[in-house]
Design a protein around this nucleic acid. Sequence first.
DNA 1: GTTAGCATGTAAGGAGTTACATGATTTT
DNA 2: AAAATCATGTAACTCCTTACATGCTAAC
Lengths: 185, 185
Amino acid sequence: MARRADVLDLAVLGLLHDSPLHGYELRKRLATVLGPFRVLSYGTLYPCLKHLSDQGWITSAANDTDPVGGRRARIVYELTAAGKEHFDALVDESGPTSWEDESFGVRFAFFARTPTEVRLRILEGRRSRLEERLDSISTSVARSRERADQYTLELQRHGLESAQREVRWLNELISHERGEQPPTA
Amino acid sequence: MARRADVLDLAVLGLLHDSPLHGYELRKRLATVLGPFRVLSYGTLYPCLKHLSDQGWITSAANDTDPVGGRRARIVYELTAAGKEHFDALVDESGPTSWEDESFGVRFAFFARTPTEVRLRILEGRRSRLEERLDSISTSVARSRERADQYTLELQRHGLESAQREVRWLNELISHERGEQPPTA
DNA sequence: GTTAGCATGTAAGGAGTTACATGATTTT
DNA sequence: AAAATCATGTAACTCCTTACATGCTAAC
């Protein structure tokens, strides 16, 4: 229980690892990590920061010594030693949740601070996940050939191609991680 | 209020448009329409069917005349006249929600029953949406060039490329809809 | 004999959104 | 003068998942 969004925790702790930040700026940077799609609302961000504070992973300090221009005083959040430990523990995990759509991007964004074996496990897990998807698309194409119209087929074709492209991308990354420098690197 | 998942309603009504189905089979076919990722749980599907029934858009009938093999009697859902009207009304809409990630695939899956002008509006809306995304990625790349490591840059590069590919795909589809047969069609 | 597939549902809870509340400053 | 950006937060609500409850048949 009390699982919350581990992915979001990871993203926030990871960003604060570089430098202390206030909520508003944090949200903008989260867009880079979570993908420019899923832009987080404050209704998610602030409760999350409160949670991280309660766990002792970050500290919050009202920065009223520097109210720039006359703007509202910002609350700056900073990673604690316990927070760094927790971040390292999260980064070391490579369970099945690491390679799902929602978390893979975040895990990848912090690869620079992830051990090589963990990186490889995540990349390979992601690749298997996509291969399962390729299988299930092929099966469903075969099953529904008569029923499906041109648009449905086109959608499936496009989905298949996108997944295949991502597999090729992962293959290159995996070769690269193993030190087998591919010609395109 | 009472918005519920309009997208899910559309998907279910659209599938029942072809033929009456029972819940279990419906769920499998939804995987084709919603994408093989997001496989719906029964905890979402059955309440949704109940909702559609309450609105008078579908009827449910216990099919105990045909308990195949001795299997549990299936409950077969069928579209009503009101349901067909509601489906047509949903399909005629081309608001900003049509081209978001969660709904675009479903809207596209029913393009065969969508008027040409609506199809074009949705495809063009989707394209603008992706172009906004391309802009926001470029901006964030520019802003974070120094801060970002190789992995973050690689993630952004891959995101950019995927979005560009989808734009090209949309361009082809739009030309095709306009009757300007592209050489690759 | 046990796993997988067929088949329908409910209850509790988690994750996140939207709308609200508030107000200053900078750009158009 | 209006709109956008900066800045923090809460309350209500929605959508969806997980786990539970039940039981039969076919394949391995």
